[in-house]
Amino acid sequence: MSATAAALSLLGLAALAVLGLHGAARALRVSADPLPVMPFGSGLEPAEHAVSRFHVRWYTVTMLFLAFDMEMVFMYPWTLVVSAMGPGAVIEMFVFLAILVAGVVYAWREGALRWT
C-alpha cells in the first residue's frame, strides 16, 4: 500500500469512528429535540453576539512568526543536503537564522513580545 493510500485509509477509518460515535449518540440519546439555550454568561443573558472582531494585542508576534515559518520551508529540505553541500550550507543557513534572531531581539527590545 502506498503512503497516500495508507493516509486515505487512516482518514477513512477515523471518519468512520466519528460517524459511528455520532450515529450511536443519535440512536441512544434521550431526546432528538434540540434544547434552545443561550451561551454561558455566569447565569446572565448575553447582550450581543460573541462573534466579533477580536482585539488581538499580540499581532506583532504573528509577524515575527510568519518570518520564521517561511524560514522553516527552507530548513526542512536543507536538513537533507547538509553533508552534500558542505560547510557552505550550514554557514548560509545559520547566517540567515542569525539575521532573523537579530530581528527577534529588536522586536523584544521594542516590547513586541509583551502586550499586557
Partner: peptide, 11 residues
Amino acid sequence: ALVAGPRRLPA
C-alpha cells in the same frame, strides 16, 4: 455523551 440530548445556541 451518548445519551445527551442536543442543544441549540443562538446563531
